[in-house]
Amino acid sequence: MFGLKKSFSVHKGFGLTLGITLFYLGLMLIIPLSTLFFKTFSLTWESFWATVTDERVMKAYQVSFGTAFLAAGVNLIFGTLIAWVLVRYQFFGKRILDALIDFPFALPTAVAGICLTTLFAGSGWVGHYLELAGIQVVFTQWGIVIALIFITLPFSVRSIQPVLEDLNPEVEEAAISLGANRWQLFSRIIVPELLPAAFAGFTLSFARALGEYGSVVFISGNLPFKTEIAPLLIVTKLEQYDYTGATSIAVVLLIFSFITLIILNSLQSLNRTWKSRN
């Protein structure tokens, strides 16, 4: 029985490819990450707990998670809208706009941070008017959110775009012929189809925003208890040669990122089952 299965299997390269996968992941991912844990384990539980529950650190987590969540949420809405426009309409310059979406991927994040700071500072083009309206962006959490929105925009657009492209126009026509109005069409037919991809995009943005450092440090001003994010604290601790303190904060951040990614992957597999079923 097993012999038969082996010799007739379509997936002949299973052993080899799995081996390569594990080796590659081990070398590139698991070993580097495990050193993080080993370094942290050199601490006693008490000093680890004291480091990660320090008031300033707790506040930094709060800022990091709060801004990342907000940025991912904003991109969920606007990313969907942008994907919708890119997929559903034909207009001049569409291809250029489409290529532009990936720009935040390519741009060094520090450059993005400096650009945004210059733009939103009181003397900048946008910041000048915002200041007149009494809104300050630079050196506040709003600044962090804007930087994170910029950095994570491609994730949400690129998650939703292919699903929208795959939507069968006949399904929408069927809904209309059955008497659905525009809102019912959107809420009952399109949204359920987009939901898994939208959530995947959200989680991806969220995870990326949690780890973002380069663009944020310029615009946030890094004020302790106010605009200090967790990755910045890690760097600060490294600069003070407090390696175990840095890895402790990193481990907590990593665990939360990992949980987020597990959610992301399960949503993606849900999305895939729908597709393969049809």
Binding site: V171, S177, G179, I189, N278
Partner: peptide, 15 residues
Amino acid sequence: NRIGFVFQHYALFRH
């Protein structure tokens, strides 16, 4: 008027 339409590829709501 009420018109029922049946598509070649069914166009069922898969969710």
